[in-house]
Amino acid sequence: MYPPSFDYAAPDDLDEAIKLFELHNDNAKIMTGGVGLINAMKHHIIRPGFLIDISRIRELSLIGDHGGYLSIGATVKVAELQRSDLVKRNYTAISEAAGAIADPLLRNMISVGGNVCTGNPDDDLPPVFLSMDAQYILAGRNGRRVIDADGFYLGHMSTAIRPGEILVEVRVPRQAERSGSAYIKRELRQNDHLVAGVAASISLEEDGRYKRLAFGLSGSGNTSIHARLPGAKFTGSRPIDVPVGDIAKMVVEEASPLSDRQGSASYKRKVILALAREALTLALQRAEQGGQK
């Protein structure tokens, strides 16, 4: 339950971190909050020779409203994200997902970057970011690149991040007027693998028709899932004409949950269906109450 030896650096400058990462790339790991990493190291699941702690790089620790988008630094603690009034008001599902992570103490330790960039299907923030068309900013030797969350999650514990790259920021497009979002999840036990989670993010036209609707799923496959079908099918429909249950059924079609100790695949589908219904209903209510202020 103790990690093997390693070297450690905590640069306060991003360029320095990138340089170190390049130098030690074959056996270095980036540490933001460190919770997932340290647990894996204590259990000898990974044995990095070098840890680059980026939590002291100030520019990565900020939440900011940049007009067109919300900027969330990679080392922002999820507790801070949960508490942020700006996030709560305009990006409700992000606040809810942050508040659904682990427990109150771990939320003081876990960073946004850590929750976003592992490709673990149980992570709570990725489905919300997927549903909101977020972008991830990756920094590396050759500068920065922007990648859509949509193309980021490749498979179980696998993402589009390249060797030497560090996730530095998440950008979430400003939510339109009359938009609303929600994230709900089910666990059998706190801090254990979850059963499933659903993020719904919608916006309405002035006349009340669906302008956009999108869903993200956790615990519903081998990585985080963006359920696009309902958006393609129901954009332009009026909520009153499309039962929430029909949309939720379509969300379930895009899930491919695995049978395990948390439940059989068919049970998980029932859970996803119920959560999708609930999340969409909440998101709709929020959108109809005005959404973005």
Binding site: Y8, A10, G34, V35, I38, N39, D53, S55, P104, L105, L106, N108, M109
Partner: peptide
């Protein structure tokens, strides 16, 4: 659990260097 700069954290999941 200890307080780190006044905030409760789990000291088994941090390195002393942090």
């Amino acid at each position: 659990t200890v307080l780190l700069d006044g905030v409760a954290v789990k000291s088994c999941t941090m390195f002393a260097v942090q």
